[in-house]
Computed example of a mutant assay.
Amino acid sequence: MNLLLGCNHPSFTLPWRTLLAHLVALHLLHLGSAQLRVVAPSLPVTAVVGQDVVLRCHLCPCKNAWNSDIRWVQHRSSGLVHHYQNGVDLEQMEEYKGRTELLRNGLSDGNLDLRITAVSSSDSGSYSCAVQDGDGYAEAVVNLEVSDPFSEIVHPWKVALAVVITILLGSFAVIIVFLHRKQVALSRELSESFQPLPPPKSL
């Protein structure tokens, strides 16, 4: 079988085996482009100790994830932070019990967002969002950075500045007290040295 291509150009033939190979390659390329993927933000999620935080990721292409197997895994310990399967929350690490929630209102749109409440410094690190849907599997990584403002290192110049301010305030208070006492003593001396004028003599 030969195929005639072109119009008003010299004709050439394309063997049917070559054409079939091209069609198969295009079909495989189309299938590959539709493979299940999980997309996560490239920037880390930041939070302060005690805050609630949401780790976000979603399916691409967008599809309903209600019947999927969704696992959030902490890289540091390789433990299950949250495990959801077919509408049911399953086992998880002890330290996350009662602190996580898969936001189900977004599952129909392919969102796999996980809320962690009252985060601590130990929650910092990388998390995998893994999805098993039929024969398809995909995962993405979300990074969480939790800061503790009360544990930050105090710079030496801040300590020195605080000491100087304390000394100045203390010195100012001492001067005020000294001046006040001196004024009181001076007033007492003036009152003691004051001699009232004698009453006028009557004629």
Rank of each mutant, 00 (worst) to 15 (best):
K97E: 15
L107A: 05
T100I: 05
G110K: 00
S124E: 05
F150H: 13
F150A: 14
V146C: 12
I167H: 08
I153K: 12
G136I: 00
G136S: 12
V141W: 01
E139Q: 09
S128M: 07
Y96F: 15
E152H: 05
S126Y: 04
C129N: 03
T166A: 15
Q92W: 01
N105S: 15
F150E: 14
L107M: 05
E101K: 11
T117V: 08
D113P: 05
T166R: 15
E94L: 11
S124Y: 01
E95Q: 12
C129S: 07
I153P: 14
S108F: 02
D133K: 01
A130K: 04
N111P: 01
F150V: 09
D135E: 09
V141G: 02
V159H: 07
A118L: 11
L102N: 06
S122C: 05
A118Q: 14
R99P: 03
E95H: 03
L161V: 02
I165W: 10
D135A: 08
D109Y: 06
E94G: 11
E139G: 05
K97S: 14
D123W: 01
S124K: 02
Y137A: 10
A130Q: 06
L103E: 09
E152I: 08
D109E: 10
V163P: 04
V154N: 02
K97P: 09
L112R: 01
L107T: 02
S126Q: 10
D109Q: 12
L161I: 00
A118V: 03
S122K: 04
D135G: 07
M93D: 15
N105V: 06
D109N: 10
N105G: 06
L144E: 04
D133P: 00
S108A: 10
V146Q: 11
S151V: 01
V142S: 04
A118R: 15
G125P: 07
A130P: 06
A140R: 00
Q132A: 11
P149A: 04
H155Q: 15
Q92K: 12
Y137V: 02
V131W: 05
D148C: 07
Q132P: 01
I153N: 08
L144C: 10
Y127T: 06
S124A: 13
L103R: 08
V164C: 15
I153Y: 10
Y137W: 01
V131Q: 08
L114M: 09
